[in-house]
Write a protein that binds this DNA or RNA. Sequence first.
DNA 1: ATCCAGTTGAAAAGGATTTTCAACTACAGA
DNA 2: TCTGTAGTTGAAAATCCTTTTCAACTGGAT
Lengths: 147, 147
Amino acid sequence: MTPLEMKRRKLRGGGNKITPQRIAILKAIDGIHSQFTPQELHRKLSAEHPEIGLVTVYRTLKLLAKSGLVCLMGNIGRSQSYARGPQQHHHHLICAGCDMVVDIPTCGLDELEKRLAHETGFTISRHHLEFTGLCRNCQAVSAGGLV
Amino acid sequence: MTPLEMKRRKLRGGGNKITPQRIAILKAIDGIHSQFTPQELHRKLSAEHPEIGLVTVYRTLKLLAKSGLVCLMGNIGRSQSYARGPQQHHHHLICAGCDMVVDIPTCGLDELEKRLAHETGFTISRHHLEFTGLCRNCQAVSAGGLV
DNA sequence: ATCCAGTTGAAAAGGATTTTCAACTACAGA
DNA sequence: TCTGTAGTTGAAAATCCTTTTCAACTGGAT
């Protein structure tokens, strides 16, 4: 079963229909390797699928996130930010220069989380960790005085 | 020197003027012990200072954040979220039920940060860590079937 | 082949934030 | 104390992102 088939199946399982728009959106997302906003995805789509409206992109991303097929990462400025891949435990290293995103699979926060829960009486259900800095490329660029 | 005087001095130092609006806003912020949005602050202000416009609140918060007198925490839904106190190294434990915010002064991420920098070639300038869960109160409420 | 619940695109509405602009004012210097 | 001016203000308008509404359309079960 191809990855796309798996995704179709997962969508169908939730009682949703498989439409040409949704397939086009799923395919487009597969080709994006950094975080993206609904607007950016729509821009990317419009080359091959000018008939797909921005509203549909918003709706579909929301649906895909609910179905676990894309990952809602939070807000960049005013915009929602999504990323390819399922919602799972991972964190991000983000370049302030070029917006590149690197996933961080481990964080070692379990200990801290347990301690906090104990000390505060909270039930902690999730955490979010984000590092910001400059990637090698952008360091070079800013060292050259271009920024 | 009172805390307020210190803040006035800090503002003046940046070449900014001390206006009645800014003083009222600084005082109001001192009375808020959880995170707040510009809109919430404006609502709170409007009782005593109906003449202060929402736009001024937005502008002043931006100025205060730049001057290090309040702390811009990120976005809650679509809204910016601020908190009393200077921007410094601390993180948050947030209750999903009542929005209460608890500061976490330590995080022990220096090691991970160093390792990441080494492995990826990034220059890491800051990180953001956030735990979400339910405080004792809200656990009780949801256990009672009210949520 | 038929039917209907789910889906679509366009336009309008909604909500947060920023910009514009003319009037006002804090305060440095005379 | 007075004056000039750069910074500040509030209201309205503009902007930007996102959601809602609605009539037309369609996937897929029967």
